[in-house]
Amino acid sequence: MTGEKGDLGGGADGKHRHRVLLIEDDPPIRERLAGALTAHGDCIVAEAANLAEARTLLAQQPPDLIVADLGLPDGLAIDFLAEARERQPEIEILVISVLGDETTILAAIAAGASGYILKDALPEDIHSTALEVLSGGSPISPSIARFIVRRARGESVTDTPVPNPNAPSLTAREFDILWGIAKGLTYNEIADRLGLSRHTVPSHIKAIYRKLQVETRGEAVYEAIQYGLIKL
């Protein structure tokens, strides 16, 4: 256990501080991420190098956000993250990824994450992504949006040529929003085009993530990840 960084407790300046549980086995990266998260003084980070430590920390104090690498020395974090979300439904999850490729996205969605952070992301970006999630946003990227749309349409994202029976049942509006994101539109532009309020777009995206988390677990790719056939 590596303990906590940043100010302990509720914070001397009276600001509410977010509790973040950071699970990453590579010390330099962990330090870099922790540094980025605590730099603005609005996050308290508990660091864990493996699942066992993470379990202990989770039991001690429930965090607002978990930032986790999926492949850890003592196993995949997917089940752990799902458990955490089950116990504490309002918890937010971000997955740490090297490449942000399709497999990682799928695994992240299966774990119930609302997005991912690239290991080499700029510190400001790491911090802002975490805060966006914590403030109820969904930092969905065009890649994720496109991935979801294609999967939901039954197009194969892997090599399975058959239409996916577990393809999420998204509404037409959700499709439109995802497509707008995939096309690189901002929330404002999407809201304007679809005649929505700007603030309803993130909640739509949250709803999409929730739907997907359930359905992704039936995916062949997900099983392959579980059995270690695909390395994260």
Binding site: G100, S141, P142, K183, G184
Partner: peptide, 8 residues
């Protein structure tokens, strides 16, 4: 689409 992915 490819450009948007790059933009990210």
């Amino acid at each position: 689409l490819a450009l948007v992915a790059w933009r990210e």
